[in-house]
Design a protein around this nucleic acid. Structure first.
Lengths: 107, 107
DNA sequence: TATATATATTGCAATATTACGATGTTAAAA
DNA sequence: TTTTAACATCGTAATATTGCAATATATATA
């Protein structure tokens, strides 16, 4: 088959896994890291920085964006992206909650 | 093509993405959560708990195990798993480091 | 309006992941 | 030694992901 059986898991479990999945590709890790090194928003220099085609970068940005992790506005002829820090920190909190409640005692 | 171009990213970025990927499936989230609810090690009751076949659960356990997140020992005729808490907390620290260094100011 | 630039979308090929039945392996118990 | 129970592995089918060339879209500028 090859399909994740989402229906047998809780919404929380699915959501959490979905977030982890977004960060589960080195290109997306690299993009987020790069965005964070810039003082201002990223415009058209992101493709040059990471060694992937414009189409591929655009796809990865969409994945990150769908998770709510970006804020973007048209600014002249280019879109300027930056991190949605609130959302990002919210995500971090969720992940920590998972880790803290899961790291139980045994062995 | 369909292959992740790992070679163009740093080892750190690849490692981090790899960890996120391990947690990027609801079955693996569910397995880790279930393991943590048990006082002692998990033996043969994990397949019954999560609605996936024995073979599939075994595969997911391997993925989690390869990331170093499990400790397992033969105990009678069954393997008993439990969380490698040290490794788990180490992972949590790494992820937090990523979040903290990446969540920069902008917009 | 026409052009140039930046980004998004589409279509496709290659590879990875997910899931499960069947089978193999291991260790205790009969 | 044979049987049984618990996992692991193999083989296979279905679906998802990755990546890019080509093309479409959007906006500023000439």
């Amino acid at each position: 088959m090859g399909v994740t059986k989402s229906q047998i898991f809780t919404e929380k479990q699915n959501d959490l896994a979905q977030f982890f999945k977004v960060l589960g590709h080195p290109a997306r890790v690299a993009i987020l890291e790069y965005i964070s090194t810039q003082d201002s928003c990223i415009c058209n220099d992101i493709v040059g920085e990471i060694g992937l085609s414009q189409a591929t970068i655009s796809q990865h940005l969409q994945v990150i964006n769908k998770a709510g992790l970006l804020k973007g506005n048209y600014k002249g002829k280019s879109i300027c992206y930056c991190l949605n820090v609130e959302r990002f920190k919210d995500l971090q909190e969720q992940l920590n909650l998972f880790f803290n409640t899961t790291a139980s005692n045994c062995c």
